[in-house]
Amino acid sequence: MTPRILYCHCAYARVLAPEVKQAVLAGLADAGVEFEAVPDLCEMSARRDERLQALAAEGPVKIAACFPRAVKWLFHSAGAPLPEEAEVLNMREQSAEAVLHNIVGVKV
C-alpha cells in the first residue's frame, strides 16, 4: 500500500524555516503526486479535527511537519493515534532534499 502524504505548513508560527517548507511544498507539487496539505496540524489537533482521525485510520502515511514526538502526541491528543507505520519527516531539522527524497524519492 503506497503511503499517503501529509504536509504541514505551520502557518501560524515561524517554527519551520520558510525556505525549507516552501521547497518541500514545491517538490511535492512538481512531483505530480497526490497529497494533502494543511495549514497547521497544531490548530487541527486543538480542534480535534475529524480529518486527523480519518488520516490516522487510513493506514501508512508520511507526514512532513516537525519533531516526530510532537506530531505523534498531537494526533493522540486529537483522539487520532497514528498507526505504527506512520513516518514523520522533520522540517525543523532535515533539509528539504532529505524530506523529499524520503517522500517522493526525488532529488531537488
Binding site: 511544498l25 503526486v33 497526490e34 496539505a37 494543511v38 495549514p39
Partner: peptide
C-alpha cells in the same frame, strides 16, 4: 498552494 495554506485552507491534491 502556499497562498491557500496561508489563508487557512487545507488542500487535497488528487486525480
Amino acid at each position: 498552494l502556499s497562498a491557500l495554506l496561508e489563508k487557512g485552507y487545507s488542500v487535497r491534491v488528487t486525480q
